[in-house]
């Protein structure tokens, strides 16, 4: 098992290197000479040459990459040209927001999706199953931005229960913080809940038909034990991977949802950066989310080993 873990960790490294190369390549797509852009009004060739040397633009591309990745590894992601702050600081400020929103959305998705999937598999073709499927289909097909706007209309405009937009740090007021995040978390969570529900349902249906579930019943076990111990334990395995991928996607920032609710997370950061041609920020965010995604997949694979004894060799 240890060899599997080590191998799995080692396999992630080239993927991360590849992402960093792609991210670095973004810079090369910048139109025009970056030194000229940096110089602005200044046209003195000596100044430009000095700038070129300062930013290592006179070095070959591979060397520029090594310098850049060296800085990244030391936590230096460059500087935002628009905000004049270091990208690392920006990422450090936005990451907790996105993380909190993603965690809340995942929690909602898990709490709704998995029980719904189990119930609709166990009560297959019952009214409950049909309703769960209808709700699931709705969850999959309703666009997040529409649901977000409708929720704002209902809970903020009509009922006045929740703030329509904005974000309060949990350190300032936890209740305010939760009030600002609950609607976007529900919007994101219900969509993912629907995916969880459908996968849990189909995995449970397959497992409930399996020989070992019949064996469990032949032992005289009570139905809840058959379902929750013998069936769910096996059915949950594919759902774990799915969960990691979904969480990874949330980490990339929910662009539309963050825009609608004005949540200052990764989604909003990257959209603003793209509009402002703030490449260092785009690079930093993409590198962070890419690495986070790989890390979550790694976690999923490791959880997989824990829940699936066949993987332990």
């Amino acid at each position: 098992m240890l060899t599997y873990v080590i191998r799995r960790v080692l396999v992630s490294i080239p993927t991360i290197v590849f992402i960093s190369i792609v991210v670095f390549g973004l810079q090369l797509l910048l139109p025009g000479d970056p030194a000229l852009a940096l110089a602005g009004e200044e046209r003195d060739p000596q100044v430009i040459a000095e700038l070129r040397r300062m930013y290592h633009l006179d070095e070959p591309v591979w060397k520029q990459y090594l310098i850049w990745i060296g800085n990244v590894l030391q936590g230096d992601l460059g500087e935002s040209i628009r905000l004049k702050v270091s990208v690392s600081d920006l990422v450090a400020a936005k990451l907790p927001v996105t993380l909190e929103l993603a965690a809340m959305a995942m929690l909602i998705a898990l709490l709704i999706g998995i029980p719904m999937g189990i119930v609709s598999a166990v009560r297959k073709e019952s009214l409950l199953d049909y309703s769960a499927n209808a709700v699931g289909l709705a969850g999959l097909s309703i666009p997040n931005f529409w649901l977000g706007i409708m929720m704002i209309l209902l809970f903020s405009v009509q009922l006045g229960w929740l703030p329509a937009s904005g974000f309060v740090k949990p350190s300032e007021s936890l209740s305010q913080n939760l009030a600002t995040l609950i609607m976007p978390a529900i919007v994101l969570g219900t969509g993912i809940a629907a995916i969880f529900m459908r996968h849990t349902r189909s995995a449970m249906l397959a497992v409930l038909r399996s020989d070992y579930v019949r064996t469990a019943r032949a032992k005289g076990l009570r139905e809840p034990r058959v379902v929750y111990r013998h069936a769910l334990r096996n059915a949950i395995i594919p759902v774990v991977t799915l969960g990691a991928i979904q969480f990874g996607e949330l980490m990339g920032g929910a662009v539309l949802t963050e825009q609608i609710f004005s949540i200052p997370g990764f989604g909003k950061l990257i959209v603003d950066a793209v509009f402002n041609r703030d490449y260092a920020v785009v690079q930093g965010v993409v590198l962070c989310t890419g690495t986070g995604f790989i890390f979550l997949n790694l976690c999923a694979d490791l959880i997989y080993v824990v829940v699936n004894p066949r993987m332990r060799g």
């Binding site: 399996s210 020989d211 070992y212 579930v213 019949r214 064996t215 469990a216 032949a218 013998h230 334990r233 096996n234 829940v307 699936n308 004894p309 066949r310």
Partner: peptide, 12 residues
């Protein structure tokens, strides 16, 4: 049962 390969739960 007929299928000893699939009649035991792989998770326990």
């Amino acid at each position: 049962f007929q299928e000893p390969m699939t009649s035991l739960n792989p998770a326990f």
